[in-house]
Design a protein around this nucleic acid. Structure first.
Length: 262
DNA sequence: AGGCAGGTCGGTA
DNA sequence: TACCGACCTGCC
C-alpha cells in the first residue's frame, strides 16, 4: 500500500477544521473526494510524526500519478515547518490546531461547498454535501450534472438549500464556461480572482476568499467569518501577507474550541 | 423558545 | 463607504 511519511500533519485535525466537506469517515479511514477522483486515507502516528496510507476507494493500490495527485492535495509538498516557524503563532493556538494543513482542493468542489455553507452551520452543510456526494457517485457533481439535479424538484427540495438554491444554479450555469479552465491561477492576482468569483450571485467576500484559499491555492487569502472577525476584535490578530490563510485556519480552530467551552 | 450558524443582498444615510 | 434587516433551515 502506498505510504507517505508525515510531520505536522493530521487527517483528523484537517477533517475537523471546517475547510472540507467532501470527506466521510469509514471504518477503514477517510473516504475522500476531489475533482472527480476518490481515495481512501488512513494514518498511523500523530500530528507530530506519522504515516499516511493512500488507497483507491475500493482498497486497491494507487499508481504513481494518483499518489502524486493526493500528495499535492494533502499539501504534503509544502514546507509547513518553515511556514509555521515564520508565522510564530501563540503556543496555545499551535496546540489546538496541531496537524492542520490547508488542502489543495478542487476549485469547483470548494465553490459548491462554500456557497452551500453561507449563513449555515457545519452539521447542516455536511448533510447537504453528503446528499450531493451520494448523487454524484461519491464525488461532487460537475456543473452540468448539478444543474440537472437542481432542476429535479424532488431532489432539490430534499437538499434543504433554502434561498441558496438559486445561488447554486447560477454558479453551475457560469461554471460550465469556466470549468475546468481555472485550475492554474498563478498568473492571476488574488484580487482579480476574488472579483471574478464575486460576480456570481451568492458569492460575497467570505465565500470568494474560501474558494481562493481552499480551491485556487492562494495561501494569502483570509476568509473573514464571524469567528475570525471576533479574533480580530478581541485579540487584535493581524494576518501574514504570504500565508495568512494558513494562519487563519489555526485561529479559526482555536476560536471555535474556546467558543465551545462557553 | 429563540438566538445563532464559516454570509449575501438590496436599500438607506 | 458603512450599516441595517431580511432570509431558508435546523442545531444548540
Amino acid at each position: 500500500m502506498a505510504a507517505i511519511a508525515t510531520t505536522l500533519f493530521s487527517l483528523d485535525a484537517i477533517a475537523a477544521s471546517g475547510q472540507v466537506f467532501t470527506w466521510r469517515r469509514t471504518e477503514d479511514g477517510w473516504l475522500v473526494a476531489s475533482g472527480g477522483r476518490r481515495c481512501l486515507l488512513s494514518q498511523e502516528g500523530d500530528a507530530e510524526k506519522g504515516v499516511v496510507f493512500v488507497r483507491r476507494a475500493d482498497g486497491s493500490d494507487v499508481n504513481a500519478d494518483e499518489l502524486a495527485y493526493w500528495r499535492h492535495y494533502l499539501a504534503l509538498d509544502v514546507d509547513y515547518q518553515k511556514i509555521l516557524d515564520e508565522l510564530a503563532m501563540p503556543a496555545e493556538v499551535m496546540e489546538v490546531g496541531a496537524g492542520i494543513r490547508v488542502l489543495a482542493q478542487d476549485w469547483w468542489d470548494t465553490a459548491v461547498s462554500f456557497v452551500v455553507s453561507q449563513n449555515s452551520n457545519i452539521v447542516r452543510i455536511q448533510r447537504t454535501m453528503d446528499a450531493l456526494l451520494d448523487a454524484g457517485g461519491g464525488c461532487v457533481p460537475g456543473p452540468g450534472r448539478l444543474s440537472a439535479l437542481l432542476g429535479d424538484e424532488a431532489f432539490a427540495t430534499g437538499l434543504k438549500l433554502g434561498y441558496r438554491r438559486p445561488y447554486l444554479e447560477a454558479l453551475a450555469a457560469r461554471a460550465q464556461a469556466w470549468y475546468p479552465a481555472r485550475i492554474d491561477r498563478r498568473d492571476v492576482s488574488l484580487e482579480e480572482s476574488m472579483a471574478e468569483l464575486e460576480e456570481s450571485p451568492g458569492i460575497g467576500p467570505k465565500v470568494a476568499s474560501c474558494i481562493c484559499l481552499f480551491g485556487l491555492g492562494y495561501l494569502e487569502a483570509v476568509p473573514r467569518d464571524t469567528w475570525i472577525k471576533r479574533a480580530e476584535r478581541e485579540h487584535h490578530v493581524t494576518w501574514d501577507s504570504r500565508w495568512g490563510g494558513i494562519q487563519q485556519q489555526f485561529f479559526f480552530a482555536w476560536m471555535r474550541e474556546k467558543g465551545r467551552g462557553k
